[in-house]
Amino acid sequence: MAIAEIQGQSTEDVRPPVRLFRNLNAKIASIPMIMTAVFVFIGCTVWTIVHSFTKSRLLPKLDFVGLDQYERLWGTRRWLVSIENLAIYGICSLVLSLVIGFTLAALLDRKIRFENTFRTILLYPFALSFIVTGLVWQWILNPDFGIQSVVRGWGWESFTFDPLYNPDIVIFGILIAGIWQGSGFIMVVMLAGLRGIDEEIWKAARVDGIPTWKTYIFVVIPMMRPVFVTALVLITSGIVKVYDLVVAQTSGGPGIASEVPAKYVYDKMFQAQNLGQGFAASTMMLLSVVIILIPWAYLEFGGKKRG
């Protein structure tokens, strides 16, 4: 009993401490982040959605006009082109980033020499900003200075490669730059995943006589599901917000051929003094993300519990 008193404990029955005050330091430390989440993310989102139903122009005004902004949005050719471009860019970028990133990672994982050098070279574009990447590729793809002029200089006079000046394929010119910058990072994520695969799995597959490519497809890739989910989230968020690459390479041109939704939102809000229209467009972007995100989140985290 004396010992208990020395340690500052009561020898009588005690009530459990108040729950609210448990781990108090951690709770206090997380207040700023909670505030940010509530006011910036949720608050501003709700505010934007509400104002997308108004006819705000230069300044936000609660002057409701129902779905007028949305009707106008979907009647604008520029928006439709933006959506189409985003779809093409998104699907191609997603597939190519995953395929190229995984292939590079798989090649690097075959115990090659100078692995560190290759990894650095391939990851280097990721260290550049989109503006720099965009400018570099604008030069490379420029018909008068870039690839086209080099090949013509070799004597192939009729060679034509000018994606940034051809409205039909301009989005693929932007795609090249996007892939060049992004796939190195995806490669690193994939490489980390591949390194996590038990060496003995590979040995077992060799003893079983499974060819390397089959082992990748039927054994290793299914094991890397969490890594693919991570890569998918990273790539998708990059796709939805693509903006600076377009501005640096084409400014949306030729004409409106390489417009993207994020650029539409920015231009309406800050160039055309048409806040209502910008809000409506950004709400549509949010909606599309939510439509993709919710079923995925439900599949991944809801449904059955994982052990």
């Binding site: 038990d198 003995e200 799995i201 040995k203 077992a204 597959a205 060799r206 003893v207 079983d208 006589g209 039927f218 054994v219 299914p222 094991m223």
Partner: peptide, 20 residues
């Protein structure tokens, strides 16, 4: 020869089963 052509079967410490 390749492991699969040697007429051996092997059991590993970490089991090395194909988890999926």
């Amino acid at each position: 020869s390749e492991p699969s052509e040697r007429g051996i079967g092997m059991v590993f410490q970490s089991y090395a089963l194909y988890p999926q």
